[in-house]
Each structure stands twice: as structure tokens, then as C-alpha cells.
Design a binder for these strands. Structure first.
Lengths: 231, 231
DNA sequence: CGCAACATTGAGACCAGTCAAGCAAAGTGG
DNA sequence: CCACTTTGCTTGACTGGTCTCAATGTTGCG
């Protein structure tokens, strides 16, 4: 069942992923170059240090980009959501680990073939560039959050972003949702410890902004207050 | 004296800037579209919120990318060195301030003209993409440093990067150099306060790793120790 | 059931922030 | 040339938020 050939018809992200800028026949050509694969929660999609040979688009699930320090601690640098890109182009080796934090499905392409395609199709190169600029913006937002906000505000910001990501419509964020990350992963992403994340969640609940319904289920009970805390 | 037409012959970054991938006549065409301008230390090159109308390449000097928070505090998100790019492509407005922290010289192009050029010249689009990927890597290194290292290690890392940047040859970093940033700017970049930066420098000097020769002049006296602190 | 993984809570230590004072260098104007 | 101001840097005392260490609770699974 794994891996499979790519079928673009009915693909959940066909209109948002970078391949959406290609014409029908061009996309068919790209599809023939690649494979579709599933990953289970916790499975490594790409490993840091690996020869960088593939480029991928996430179709379903959530993946984390992380870096393992010399002392063995992991640092999450960002998350990848459906339609997002995984794998560094134009570099000899991967600098980051990419790991599924939920069951994932991805379209995998040989890196050199994909790079060649960007050379012959300027629209694709532009689209990848735009996406990379978005990643850069996100990375800078993370810097801002880590260096300025205190722990409860960082956790609040993360909860709000989960709220947005877990909703089918971007305009109407979900008020109840499941956390895609463990406390430990949230801590690594926010530059905190597990204990501080846990204490912050407790504090947010005590202040009536959220309610816990199971260790991974959150309900937002006072969104304005939560947003005010982040701003 | 300001602004002037662009003359690529003898340009200090002609072999490293993104325009280096263009052919001679193509570059001449680009040069006609733009202007070269000087900025004094402290001068704003682009302001956040501005309609994003220009794209620029830094030819000389050092610039900072910063964000002003709602409470008025400034946060530096990164530095731009010669051959680096300034100005966000494909976005309606600038999200970051770009300010000269040293006297600068830059080639300024209309954003839409430059974007059009990336559409017709895949090599240029690829080159801009590569540069953006490098920026993304740098931004993620900053995340790593801010969230994991303590104050003296962050300052040490910054000093080492200045040491590299101020040397003509990348392979032989300079042991004595002037700091391009004030204590306040270093603090904003590292996510610390002025006082903590100052105390960290004092501590590094007390431990014999560096020596201060004037408030902006630093000499590295024990590079291995400094590198060990960062690693 | 009992184990393993994850989460919560508490006590104490420590690093960096805040507040405040003093110092040094570079202008500025009489 | 000398007060005077401005700006930036250093240092100290104190506070406080987060980390560390440790114990306990909870959930899910073989």
C-alpha cells in the first residue's frame, strides 16, 4: 500500500500546492516523476545530514521540522501543514529533520528532477519562491514570539494557530480542537520546558480562557482574551 | 550625489549578487531600470507598512531588518551584508523595516520590474530562491541561538560572526575588528537587554576570551574557547 | 493488571530583566 | 577653551519568570 503512484485528480491540495501553477500536461509529467507515500505518526520523513535527494509536498497530516543539538536535545523550527513543502532545494544535504507528528501523506519527487523543472518553468520557480518567502515570514514570527512573549502568551499563540489550522475554513477558526503536538513538542517549538507549557495551560484554564477536555483536547472559551494576551 | 545611475563595471559584489546570473546585456537592461543610492548610518532604507514598491541589493555597508512592536520596542530579525537582498517580493507591503547600521550603498529597482524579470529569466528566479533559502537558514539559526543558548554564548556567537564578516577572506576570520552594532542593537538582535549584553562582554573579557580596545573595538584572544562556548 | 508514556504539580535555584546610578566619549554653544 | 548636554556603556542591587529536580497523576496498551 506504500508507496503509490501519484493521482492528481481529487487531490486535497491540488489548488494550493506549488504544483498548482503547472498546466494539466505538465503536472501529469511531474506526477510520473514522483510517488505518493504515507507516514505514521513519529515516522521520519527526511533526516538531517542525509544527502538531499528528494523534495516533497505534504498532502495530509502535520510534520515538524527539527534540529538535534550536539547534546541530544531536539529543537522544533517549524511545522508543515497540507500543501506545504518539505526538503531543501539547491543544497547538497538536508539540514533539518522532517518527522510526521500525525499520520501523513506526501508526494515525493526526486530533487534534481524538480529543480530542473523550476529551471524550465519560471512560474514554478516563482511559486516555490513565494512559498519560501512565506516560510521565512513564519520563521521570523517565531523569532518574535520566542524572544518577546512570556510563556503563557507563547502557548496562547500556539493554541490560536492550532485553532486556525484545524478549521476547514480559514475565516471561522474552530473553538474546540485536538492538539496535534504533545506537551514536549509544544515546548520544543516554543523554546520552553514541558513543565512550563503545562503550567501555562493550567493558568490559561484558571483564567477562564480555555477548557481542557482530555489531555489533547482544548476548547477556547474566551477568544478575545486569548487574542489580547498574544497581541 | 544621490541617487545615481548604476554602473556594474567595478561593482564590488558583481560576482556574488543575484544579478550575477544575468548575461552582460541583460544586466545592462536591469541597470537601466534602477538607481544606486547611498544611505547614512541610521537612515531608513525601507519602512514596515510601506507599499512594497522596491527591491534592492546591498553593495556596501550593513543594514538591519527590524520590526517595531505595538509597545514601541524594536526587534532586529536579521542583518543584511553586501550582496544581500532587501525588500520583500510578491507582497503588497513591507513587513520589516530596513535601516542602515553603517553607511550603505545599494542598487534599487522597481519591484514589479524586477519581478517581471524573474518571470522571463528562470535563472534569476532560481538565484533569488537560493538566496531566500539562505536567509531562511539564517533565520532558523537565530531561532536556535535565541531559544537554547544563554546570554554569554549568544554574544560569543555574534562576535564570531562579526569576526567572519569583517575579514576580507572567509577562511581567515579577523581577530581584531570593530563592532558594526551598538550594544542596544546587539541586544535587540539576540533577544537580550543592553545591560545583559554589556555584562556578557565583561564576562567574556574576564575569562580571557576577548579584549576590549575601545567601546566598539574587540580583539579575540582565545578563539577556541569562544567557539567551544558557542558549540 | 501492570507497565510505559505523557501530563501535572510543587519547591528551590538561577539566569536575565528591571530599576537606578555612575562613567566615558562626542558634540554643542557660549 | 571650557561648561553642558547627549548618547552610549558599565556596574550594582533586587526582582521575577523559567528551569531543574522530584513526586504524583493520568491515559492507553499489551
Amino acid at each position: 500500500m506504500n508507496p503509490q503512484t501519484i493521482v492528481c485528480n481529487g487531490c486535497a491540495v491540488a489548488d494550493r500546492a506549488v504544483c498548482s501553477v503547472l498546466t494539466e500536461p505538465e503536472r501529469a509529467e511531474l506526477a510520473r516523476m514522483g510517488r505518493r507515500r504515507r507516514y505514521r505518526r513519529g515516522e521520519t520523513i527526511m533526516a538531517a545530514g542525509d544527502e538531499s535527494t528528494v523534495f516533497a509536498t505534504l498532502v495530509e497530516g502535520v510534520a515538524k521540522l527539527s534540529l538535534i543539538d550536539s547534546d541530544g536535545t531536539e529543537r522544533i523550527m517549524g511545522l508543515v501543514h497540507p500543501a506545504g513543502m518539505m526538503g531543501q532545494l539547491f543544497t547538497p544535504s538536508q539540514r533539518l529533520n522532517v518527522t510526521a507528528v500525525q499520520n501523513c501523506e506526501a508526494c515525493i519527487f526526486p530533487r534534481d528532477s524538480f529543480e530542473a523543472l523550476t529551471a524550465s518553468h519560471p512560474a514554478l520557480a516563482q511559486r516555490v519562491l513565494k512559498e519560501t518567502l512565506r516560510d521565512l515570514d513564519e520563521s521570523r514570527s517565531l523569532i518574535d514570539m520566542i524572544s518577546r512573549r512570556q510563556a503563557p502568551a507563547r502557548v496562547a499563540a500556539l493554541l490560536l494557530s492550532f485553532s486556525r489550522a484545524s478549521s476547514p475554513s480559514a475565516c471561522f477558526p474552530a473553538d474546540a480542537f485536538d492538539l496535534p503536538l504533545t506537551r514536549g513538542e509544544m515546548a520544543q517549538l516554543l523554546g520552553l520546558t514541558i513543565e512550563t507549557v503545562s503550567r501555562s495551560i493550567t493558568a490559561l484554564e484558571r483564567d477562564g480562557m480555555i477548557r481542557r477536555t482530555g489531555s489533547q483536547s482544548i476548547a477556547i472559551t474566551d477568544r478575545p482574551a486569548l487574542e489580547a494576551l498574544v497581541a
